[in-house]
Amino acid sequence: MLDVKSLTGGYAGALAIEDITFSLGASESLALLGRNGAGKTTTLKTLMGLLAPWSGGIEFKGAAITGQSSDRIAHAGIGYVPEERRIFESLSVTENLVAGEKPGRSGRIDWTVERVFGLFPEIARRSAAQAGTLSGGERQMLAIGRALMGNPELLLLDEPSEGLAPVVVNRLGDALAALRSDGIAILISEQNRNLARRVAENLVILETGRVAYRGNFSGLDGDPAIATRLLGV
């Protein structure tokens, strides 16, 4: 579904990721782990077309999307949930969802406002509230719901657990697991391994902008030294 080859990029001349290569099969999910500053956010932003890649290639469903504008990448079937959530704070919850509305690649419409509210009853209760008044967890649910309204086949999630209480993270894990079983592929960047493993089997660990480890969670559990070296202090 997604093939990333030797992706290199960064901001304003500053290198942030170097030679990143990984791929994702159909309906597969992958976790991108690493300490902050490792290049997870840059990788996702570059995939989404928010940063121009310096070199390397990105293929989605067999077509090259390298260097395309973010709206075209969205229309190709990729949904994006950014790290800071970036919900439209002056809009109501429902309006945020409407702003994300678009048919999927083949004109399919699987997601409606009602279905998103079914997945996240927490925000359904606040449908008319201004999004700026939502709590951290509600904002994250809204950002995910808004991305789902575009009927994506692949969802990019950038550190969804950041700043959230454990029970809320748990709740998000349930929802993401449900999306997985629905057949939506997920690429999740996380520092919270517990959440990441509920969503994905395979993982890539980045360290200072490069791929430092590639494998799956059972492999990682069997080798705590790697985890401490790449993720701990």
Partner: peptide, 18 residues
């Protein structure tokens, strides 16, 4: 709604496919 969203965060709106 899109006009208001764009006034707030144009880049995010584009990443949603607009």
């Amino acid at each position: 709604i899109l006009v208001r969203a764009a006034t707030e965060d144009r880049e995010m709106l584009q990443a949603l496919g607009v």
